[in-house]
Design a protein around this nucleic acid. Structure first.
Ligand code: MN
Ligand code: MN
Ligand code: ZN
Ligand code: ZN
Lengths: 144, 144
DNA sequence: TTACTTACTTATAATCATTATAAAATAAAA
DNA sequence: TTTTATTTTATAATGATTATAAGTAAGTAA
């Protein structure tokens, strides 16, 4: 995700308004290396700004996602997680418990081309699916 | 996704039953290179088997996903898409219209390691996010 | 400052994709 | 066959996300 200053410029250039709510949400995401859900963010932000609405949070998350500033992650646990860290990195997804973690050991190999098959490329991701240390032992039958 | 024969062996080895419904759903997914939603599959399968329930379809899709035989794709359009093609390939996701297409380009990473950060790795994916040819022109302001 | 315009936020209600439930059906083993 | 555990089905419930419409405030220009 780009800096607050750059997002401010982005919104203004689109004829938009830099509101207290947008700033609050942006700040909660900036430099955030977890993969929070909308509800998790809401619980945290309500403590600072009790009148913040879930609708505004979703609107702002959708806006950031459509700009490519954050990325949606579906890990199969029922709600969407958001990743503000869109620089190339490797993610591990557990097929059993749905945990998603950034890899500590492996850097992303890829660099994104500017264009591919007519798409203008903004970012990319590398995901590995499998069974986490906790779930491995419980799922020996599928560890063929 | 593995062959019907291999899935049959998998179910039986888990003490499960190879039912007409499982076979029907497996066949609809095998060699399917689209990214259908549960609803899209349901509409198609109902024509063959009118009493098939959505619940069974979801149960079977979740089962396949937990085995790593198919992969969930969240493109932000409100419902989950499923990809039965889990061999390494490149996908392009449009941030504006939510289209997901397989690219003809070769993936940068052809093989997954067996293990990473304690995870047993089953498959991996490479996704590029940006704006499709149709949406690019409409979104010139963000094509900075 | 002031008023003005328009984008944004909020509370509320609605939607709809997915999951839970419990009775009926059936694959597979005995 | 008979038995039994698994699966399926119809139905209802859940819960994440979105639509609505009235009120609020950011930005702009006197
Ligand atoms: Mn991440
Ligand atoms: Mn694909
Ligand atoms: Zn796990
Ligand atoms: Zn598009």
């Amino acid at each position: 995700m780009r800096t607050i200053e750059e997002l401010t410029a982005q919104v203004r250039s689109n004829g938009g308004k830099v509101t207290a709510q947008r700033l609050l949400i942006w700040q909660a995401l900036y430099n955030n290396r977890t993969h929070p859900t909308a509800e998790e963010l809401y619980q945290k932000l309500k403590q600072v700004s009790p009148t913040l609405s879930l609708t505004t949070l979703y609107n702002t998350l959708n806006e950031l996602a459509s700009w490519g500033e954050i990325r949606r992650i579906d890990n199969g646990d029922g709600s969407i997680h958001y990743d503000p860290f869109v620089e190339p990195h490797v993610e591990l997804v557990c097929l059993a418990c749905h945990k998603v973690v950034d890899s500590q050991s492996k850097p992303a190999l890829l660099s994104a081309p500017e264009e591919m098959d007519g798409f203008k490329i903004i970012s990319h991701s590398e995901q590995y699916y499998g069974y986490c240390p906790v779930c491995r032992s419980a799922f020996n039958q599928v560890n063929k």
